[in-house]
């Protein structure tokens, strides 16, 4: 235990959104028990000691739930392990002598702030355009007034598990945000509480998504990259709801 491994890192360095970037090479020596981000912390401490600029990257909770960390590691969003965010990746996944390439998440709408940190504010814009149920504080009925079938609640939860990290966009060859948007839409569309705004929500969020991101060609890379393993099924549901939203006679949507 506590074996140390030596690694060569190729890290993308970019001074600002409008600067051109480059790869820089660093050596790292780190315990197998360290996490990937702790390895970067260590590299940074070394850089600071040498009076060199540390690598800028973002992270927060470091337990795979806040969605702040990103990174393309050896060409895979959040690294090689399925169902994990970068912060959950541990160095024992790698071997002594490995060469690791570290890049930021890339898409036109994920402009690079510095080095490995990107802005994912476009995802918030999608959410703001309809990712809510309009229920003002205090106007909610009793929580058990509307029963929700367990299967529907579980399915909605599967969608709601999305942590908004943007790995789906990064991994997508088309820079499409379908998996994110579909997860956010279907979380609410699958619940009885989400029905009144179902059609307008779907239209607004999809239309906003398309202002920023590419189109889905059903590669499925997003699902593989997703740290919460969100299913592609939600994309199918979203597609169905979107065209339905165009066709539906909404004056009758109060009927069952």
């Amino acid at each position: 235990m506590n074996n140390e491994i030596n690694l060569t890192l190729e890290v993308w360095r970019q001074d600002g959104p409008n600067e051109s970037g480059r790869f820089e090479t660093y050596d790292a020596k780190v315990s197998e028990d360290a996490s990937f981000l702790e390895m970067l912390d260590l590299v940074n401490e070394g850089l600071i000691e040498d009076d060199r600029q540390p690598i800028t990257f973002e992270s927060d909770c470091r337990e795979g739930i806040c969605g702040t960390c990103s990174l393309m590691i050896n060409g895979e969003a959040h690294g090689p392990n399925k169902g994990q965010a970068t912060c959950q990746l541990h160095m024992r996944t790698f071997k002594n002598g490995d060469h690791i390439t570290v890049e930021p998440f890339r898409a036109t709408s994920f402009p690079i702030i510095k080095d490995l940190a990107v802005s994912r504010a476009a995802l918030d814009s999608i959410q703001q355009s309809g990712g809510y149920i309009s229920v003002g504080t205090g106007s909610a009925p009793d929580a058990n007034l509307v029963p929700v079938p367990k299967e529907a609640a579980e399915m909605a939860f599967d969608a709601a598990a999305c942590i908004g990290c943007g790995a789906c966009v990064a991994a997508c060859p088309n820079s499409a945000a379908q998996l994110f948007t579909a997860a956010k839409i279907q979380h609410l569309n699958l619940l009885p509480q989400g029905q009144p705004e179902r059609w307008s929500r779907t239209e607004n969020m999809v239309d906003t998504m398309e202002e920023f991101f590419g189109t889905c060609t059903n590669h499925g890379e997003c699902h593989e990259a997703c740290p919460k393993e969100i299913s592609l099924d939600f994309i199918a549901f979203m597609n169905r709801d979107y065209v339905k939203a165009k066709i539906k006679n909404r004056t009758l949507s109060g009927q069952r």
């Binding site: 190729e10 993308w12 970037g21 790869f23 393309m72 050896n74 060409g75 895979e76 390439t101 570290v102 890049e103 890339r106 898409a107 036109t108 709408s109 994920f110 402009p111 690079i112 991994a171 997508c172 060859p173 088309n174 820079s175 499409a176 920023f212 991101f213 590419g214």
Partner: peptide, 18 residues
Amino acid sequence: ASHGANVVDGQKSYPGGQ
């Protein structure tokens, strides 16, 4: 949606390889 991210020719590619 891709070309603004150091991407060539519509097909998004990471310089480090995807």
